[in-house]
Write a protein that binds this DNA or RNA. Structure first.
Lengths: 151, 151
DNA sequence: CTTGAAAAAAAGTGCCC
DNA sequence: GGGCACTTTTTTTCAAG
């Protein structure tokens, strides 16, 4: 993982549709060595996958909400159970268990309020062990990147 | 945006490294029509971009934290100023202004505690108009996808 | 053992129906 | 939407530092 690998990762995180010769020129390598490096990064698992990022508005998912959850019983198995349940919801795009007073945080991509209503009904029923939950709606997105700083 | 477009978007969100002939076979179309659809989705802006997703651990960014922020003065211009400042931090991968008691929520990707320390020092100094902030560390990631439900 | 170059295979592109 | 010629890119192989 030298300087060139870092630069490749940075470039690929910004735009993975670039062709190999383009990338090679940008990092100052021959296309063949460049390709070898990229393949190595893939095989090492540093590059996990290549995906298409959609425009949420144009894909009909305008609403974004963040829900912080506090469970009734905080044991590891209860948190795991709740996370598993949340994970099964397509509208849940991120689900974490966290330290502190809050047990879990969910990030949601929603079509409308009805979808949120149905989802909260499923996740926060009596039997689900949820003590409290707080829903914050995203008003403005200052930044939203998949890019991890490297190097 | 018919059934086939939705399926294409779903496939591309999961793995955009697939070749056009492969995609065409999966949705039951000829390669040329398939390519036409994908290009149309690009031009319409439904597909925003193609990116590489890294494995955070293997890229040396193991720590993840979520910070909820409450500002002293809640006016639109103050929130905007804070978001702009947070956005400039490379470790901040998501920054939102939200409804409710909390004014902003930040998602961080960190290398270590020192990096968090330096960042909080910059963002939550006296002059930054922050009344309170609460840092939650991610213990377990139940789900983390860039995939938006379509169709 | 790593790098660059060239040939072969495959994919992407544009135009026709 | 499908088919076909044309171009570009990717991938393999091979030679050189």
């Amino acid at each position: 993982m030298d300087k060139i690998d870092s630069k490749l990762l940075r470039l690929l995180q910004q735009d993975a549709s670039r062709t190999n010769p383009e990338l090679a020129a940008e990092v100052g390598l021959s296309p063949s060595s460049c390709l070898r490096r990229i393949r190595r990064l893939h095989e090492a698992g540093v590059i996990d996958r290549i995906v298409a990022i959609l425009n949420p508005a144009k894909a009909g998912r305008t609403m974004k909400a963040i829900i912080t959850v506090e469970l009734e019983r905080h044991g590891e198995q209860y948190i795991r159970r709740f996370l598993d349940m949340a994970t099964r919801e397509p509208a849940v795009i991120q689900a974490y268990s966290v330290s502190g007073e809050t047990d879990a945080i969910l990030m949601l991509r929603l079509k409308d309020m009805d979808e949120l209503d149905a989802l909260t009904e499923r996740l926060f029923r009596e039997e689900t062990n949820v003590a409290r939950y707080y829903t914050a709606f995203v008003i403005r997105t200052g930044k939203e990147t998949t890019e991890i700083p490297v190097g």
